[in-house]
Each structure stands twice: as C-alpha cells, then as structure tokens.
C-alpha cells in the first residue's frame, strides 16, 4: 500500500459581503462550498454543480456569476456578495421585499440565485419591461413557481428601488 495522498492546502481569503473571510482549503474547493461550508454562509444553494440551474449565483464585483463554476482560490481577487449581503430579516432589500410581496418564492431553494441575479440586473436596467424582466431571469431554474410571480417580483423591485431614490 502506498502513502496516503495528502492534499496541499492553501490559505484563501475572500472578501464576502464586505468582510475578509479566511480558510485553509485545497485548491479544488469550489467557491460555493467555500461560502457554505468554510465561511458558514449557507444562503447560497447548490442545485446542480454544473452551472445550469443558477441557484448558487453570487455577485462577483457586482456581476452575477455561478459560484459552483469558480474556485475559492480564484475568487480572492474579487469582492463577493451573497444573499446574506442583500438585506436582513428586519431590513429586506428591495428585491427581497418584492419577492415577499409578489409571492416570488415557494420552497425558497433557488431563490438566492434569483435575488442576486435580479439585483445586478436592476442596476443595469432600473426600469425593465415585462419581457426584459422575464429574459433577465431566464438563466435560473425554479421548479416551484412557474416564474410568473418572479417576473412580477422583478417589476415590483424596480418600483421599490425607484421609490427609494
């Protein structure tokens, strides 16, 4: 029998929701697992681990990206925002508030990926049409809602953002 394979560990520090978060992890640690299991921010969910479902979408320097398709070690160069950084129970962000008002979620598993995606979308397009809203969420899978109330949520979030400014 050969020697046990011992994997090299790296010191990885990623800025998450404005705070530097450090862990010693192997190079292959996916950003999604780093956030969930090393940092303990379990709001980012993992639905497919091949980049299709969008549940794990986080904001990387403000742009939505799949955290299952990035290694934590690579993410050190960026500022990462997760669903936990979009608002709190006592102070929901506008997108979160809109999803609450419009019944934009059911089981809630895919929701964090929608919230991050929509947050970035509304920064680029603060006053979308219904068609644009639908297209904006068309890279995220939801198995519960049929998307209709998510589209409504996007439009409502745009209103809430406009009211806040």
């Amino acid at each position: 029998m050969s020697e046990p394979m011992v994997e090299q560990l790296l010191d990885v520090t990623v800025t998450v929701n404005g705070r530097p978060r450090h862990a010693r992890v192997p190079a292959r640690r996916l950003l999604s697992d780093f956030l969930r299991h090393d940092v303990g921010l379990t709001g980012t969910h993992v639905g497919c681990e091949h980049g299709v479902c969008g549940a794990c979408t986080v904001l990387v320097d403000g742009a939505p990206m799949r955290s299952c398709l990035m290694f934590a070690v690579t993410a050190q160069a960026y500022a990462v925002t997760t669903v936990e950084g979009l608002g709190s129970m006592d102070g929901l962000g506008p997108v979160q508030q809109a999803f609450l008002e419009c019944h934009g979620l059911q089981c809630g598993f895919c929701t964090p990926g929608f919230l991050t995606t929509v947050t970035a979308f509304l920064c680029d397009n603060p006053d979308p049409t219904e068609g644009q809203a639908r297209e904006a969420i068309s890279g995220n899978l939801c198995r519960c809602t049929g998307y209709q109330n998510i589209v409504r949520s996007v439009l409502r979030a745009a209103e809430l953002r406009a009211e806040a400014t």
């Binding site: 292959r28 996916l30 681990e49 980049g51 299952c68 398709l69 990035m70 290694f71 070690v73 690579t74």
Partner: peptide
Amino acid sequence: GQSLIPLLNMRLASPGHLVD
C-alpha cells in the same frame, strides 16, 4: 472556466495541474 469546471466537477476531466 465555464466549460472546464463542469467537466472537472463531473470528473470527466481531471488534469493534474490547473494553470489559473
């Protein structure tokens, strides 16, 4: 990595070295 990492996650590719 948007094509490569899915292959790595599924272990359809497992290179010994990744040049990031």
